[in-house]
Simulated scan of single mutants.
Amino acid sequence: MVDMISQSKNEADRLPYGSVKRRLEASSTKHVFVKDMAFAMTDGYRQFLPKGYRHTFLIRNPHRSILSYRRSMFKQFSELGLLEGEAADERTYDLERDDRFFAPGYFVKEVYDLWKYLQDEKIDPKPIVIDGDDLLTKPAETLSAYCAAVGLPYNDSLLQWDASLESFKTMKACGDNLLMDLANFYGTAMKSSCFFPPSKSPSRDQMPADVIRCSDKVMTCFEEMYESRLKV
């Protein structure tokens, strides 16, 4: 459902995005869980959102999410030898200047816009919002409340899993070995076997200038969604 280019209806029907939508809407399976990225569901792509589904948004304070993204992407670019000059120094690296993949809405506004779209278009009048810190702090309570809200079965086995790379090797992605090649982003998840408590949030004076600048631009979007989060 990602990277869809505007096409005529007949052309779109032949593309895999339309096929995924039709398969999801026609599924007779009792429980269907689908994951996607909000930045892949911007204006030209929303026609491929399946009907009849509840929508959930996992949010994270921009101070945390943008700082984490900055660290991961700087390390990824550095290992590939793609940084030069000021960009090659983590102290002077700048997301808006040096990261060609950084979303225009900093991966926060895109989430907010899709959340509003679902409500404005009455596709899902009450999308569920889960705050990442709530999930990490109270995983059992948050997951059980979430499952109850969407009609999924809950049991405590959801709180632990095997720390194995095998599941990542079998996941379908938009490129061969994509997940394995992005260990700077998924490495912690690959090695985990349970939910870890959230780390202490950095103070503003400890954050790089580009993280502060970008966070300030989208903080109101996060705060509005945070107010509607699933409370446990």
Score class of each variant (00 low, 15 high):
218 V>G: 01
32 V>W: 00
206 Q>T: 14
34 V>L: 07
35 K>R: 08
199 S>Y: 05
217 K>I: 05
228 S>Y: 11
177 N>L: 10
211 V>G: 02
17 Y>V: 02
83 L>T: 06
100 R>W: 12
200 K>A: 08
30 K>Y: 07
203 S>K: 14
57 F>V: 02
83 L>H: 04
190 M>W: 05
24 L>A: 06
112 Y>A: 01
226 Y>W: 14
30 K>A: 09
14 R>T: 13
184 N>V: 09
82 L>S: 14
70 R>T: 08
204 R>I: 15
98 D>H: 12
180 M>T: 13
200 K>Q: 11
82 L>T: 06
218 V>A: 02
68 S>W: 12
139 P>M: 13
196 F>V: 12
128 I>D: 00
97 R>Y: 05
3 D>Q: 14
231 K>F: 11
33 F>R: 10
124 D>P: 06
206 Q>S: 15
62 P>K: 00
104 P>I: 15
180 M>P: 01
71 R>A: 06
80 L>R: 14
124 D>W: 07
112 Y>R: 09
81 G>M: 12
29 T>A: 11
163 A>C: 11
86 E>C: 08
43 D>N: 12
206 Q>W: 07
120 D>L: 08
113 D>I: 13
223 E>N: 05
136 L>K: 09
201 S>K: 07
231 K>T: 06
199 S>W: 03
67 L>R: 03
18 G>P: 01
193 S>A: 15
202 P>E: 14
211 V>T: 03
93 Y>P: 00
104 P>Q: 13
218 V>W: 01
48 F>Q: 01
125 P>T: 04
180 M>F: 05
203 S>V: 13
113 D>A: 15
179 L>N: 04
222 F>W: 04
197 P>D: 06
210 D>K: 07
107 F>C: 03
127 P>M: 03
10 N>D: 10
204 R>W: 15
12 A>D: 13
172 K>F: 09
84 E>F: 11
43 D>Y: 05
186 Y>P: 05
64 R>H: 10
1 M>N: 02
74 F>M: 04
